[in-house]
Design a protein around this nucleic acid. Structure first.
Lengths: 343, 343
DNA sequence: TTGTATGCGTTATCAA
DNA sequence: TTGATAACGCATACAA
């Protein structure tokens, strides 16, 4: 087991000083050509690489960023992670992942740990449901006070002033509903989350606006707000069994797929009897039978944008107080579940 | 923006030496009761936390581990990540994630970066397809030579001696095929990967063994080895269109779901005409219509086991050369796609 | 009971 | 052209 080689080792071996070695390796012109060559050759031979920890200690930066997501089993967050990782690695940063499991406590603990230990240089976070419910953002504000950059994504809040990257949720829902209407649907149901989930609320607003703009009534009984994951199926069944509608928009993959399954069990044909659209860029919608039209949120782009913003802020010396919000437009991926009425 | 507080700050403020502060905070009995109290109170007030980097430099360990996975859009790896993260955080470790994208080069580069910079203390890795094809494992052996623990999961190789956590792929496939046979299926197709993918190979072997044990012939034309992701659909269509079979086992979620879709388009009823089983613990199988029976690989357990083994090795001082391989049994989750023949 | 000194590996400043 | 030294923040052996 070879121990890792250090500057000191090289210095001793070549009988020069540590600083000479350091400078040589950095191609510092102070050092004579031949010494430099010699050192570099030796270093290469022994595969020298600077010890990151020492450099971190010196520079007071780790070149690590934390990504905190509420869930990993949503394809959306998975693609976000991929996007973040892509840009981060490209720029020489590493990504520490933390799944909050929708828990406020876990979110707070992770952030404190990462921030206080100086483990990461900055954060990308999507709020847990519990956090959005409690509306307690002290941990985030604290992070900012410590001078650590923070980029919020997707599930964000106005209560925290920071860079943000969000989905155009309202417009995404608006587009979906409009798509239904263009295809002749008139009674459009919505399966969304409780209002405290920011994205759920915005999607509902987009849904309502689309109806209003097309002079269609907003019917309360066609809108269901899912309380908890495990009651989703029952609540959706309730909608399906007791209401008549010819289209349904789900604010995530699960709601849409569950709705479709229940509708099919009832003998409804998709899309002839009921058209379906779901939010998210996941495989659940893509591989469903029939495949389901999706409001693509472009998780990868969100991840890339967030990582880009964060790193830019980390590397810019100026204390820029102009926080930006980048809105990533959604796009509608038309699939089988909305064909046919019209086409 | 409050700068982070250090031992030095506390020492100056309380007019004691740095080591007194350090010892006080560690409850070292050397220090007098009142000094200790005073220091601790002050530290608490200013929310002192030791600087992780400094501690890392001192101890020559970061308390970070790297998880290198080939893909993030497979639910299996996603659950692995979750399991790893769970145990790691519980034991005070952080997880750096790296997606190799099935690329040998990316895998090698990430490992070198993590290892040489002393960025992590150890590795959990699942090999990329390209690596398994090339059979070039120098980067992993190098890591071990440097004395860094390595735990391989799922896609492993005999060429590298290390701790391993694997799925019981052979038995998983065997169980699936047996399940078909018990339900009256006789012509069972297999959709697998190329042989160089270790898990694909093992699953094929399990499939063959099950057939043999039940005195059924192994028919080459019923086994298709997918070359690449983008040819999967064509290759599976070829099988579906040109062969007669009453059951099909896919070695991952995608293959099974695609097969089902193509079969349904052909007018086949699932499971009456063709029964289906897929590998993986993902939502694609669970939410399919009909839902698809799954060979659950328990990604979360694999992740937990791997993290456990890795951390154990990191924390045990003794240079134990007895590498272990933990085999996580699969379990069959019966769903609609294999009901009916018998029940 | 408290303080001083050293070292972890690196870089940067300044002296030779 | 090269080398000695300090500093990053902490822990510890040893001195007082």
């Amino acid at each position: 087991m070879k121990r890792k080689i250090t500057l000191k080792d090289i210095a001793k071996e070549l009988d020069v000083s540590i600083s000479t070695v350091s400078k040589s390796l950095k191609n510092n012109p102070e050092i004579g050509e031949d010494t430099r060559q010699k050192v570099q050759a030796f270093a290469k031979l022994y595969n020298y690489k600077p010890n990151n920890i020492a450099v971190s200690l010196l520079n007071q930066r780790t070149k690590h960023i934390a990504l905190i997501i509420p869930e990993i089993t949503h394809d959306f967050f998975t693609t976000v992670l991929k996007g973040v990782e892509e840009v981060a690695h490209h720029k020489g940063y590493n990504v520490l992942v933390c799944v909050s499991n929708e828990s406020f406590e876990k979110e707070v603990l992770s952030i404190e740990m990462f921030a206080q230990g100086g483990i990461v240089d900055g954060f990308i976070i999507s709020l847990s449901k519990e956090t959005q419910l409690k509306e307690d953002y002290k941990h985030l504000i604290e992070v900012e006070n410590q001078g650590m950059p923070l980029v919020m994504i997707d599930r964000v809040t106005d209560k925290v002033i920071s860079d943000k990257v969000i989905v155009d949720d309202m417009r995404g829902a608006y587009t979906g509903v409009s798509h239904f209407i263009e295809r002749g649907c008139r009674r459009i149901a919505l399966i969304t989350t409780q209002d405290h989930i920011s994205v759920g609320y915005l999607r509902k607003e987009g849904y309502k606006k689309a109806l209003a703009d097309h002079v269609l009534p907003v019917e309360e009984q066609l809108m269901v707000a899912i309380d908890q994951v495990d009651t989703a199926e029952d609540q959706i069944a309730d909608l399906v069994n007791n209401q008549e509608f010819d289209a349904v928009l789900g604010v995530n993959e699960y709601f849409s797929v569950i709705a479709m399954k229940l509708l099919q069990e009832q003998g409804k044909r998709i899309p002839q009897d009921v058209a379906i659209i779901g939010f998210s860029d996941g495989k659940l919608l893509k591989y469903a039978t029939p495949s389901i039209t999706a409001v693509d949120q472009h998780g990868d782009e969100i991840g890339r944008a967030a990582a880009g913003m964060l790193i830019e802020r980390l590397e810019s010396s100026k204390q820029d107080e102009n926080y930006r919000t980048t809105v990533i437009p959604t796009s509608l991926i038309e699939r089988e579940s909305t064909l046919g009425k019209q086409d």
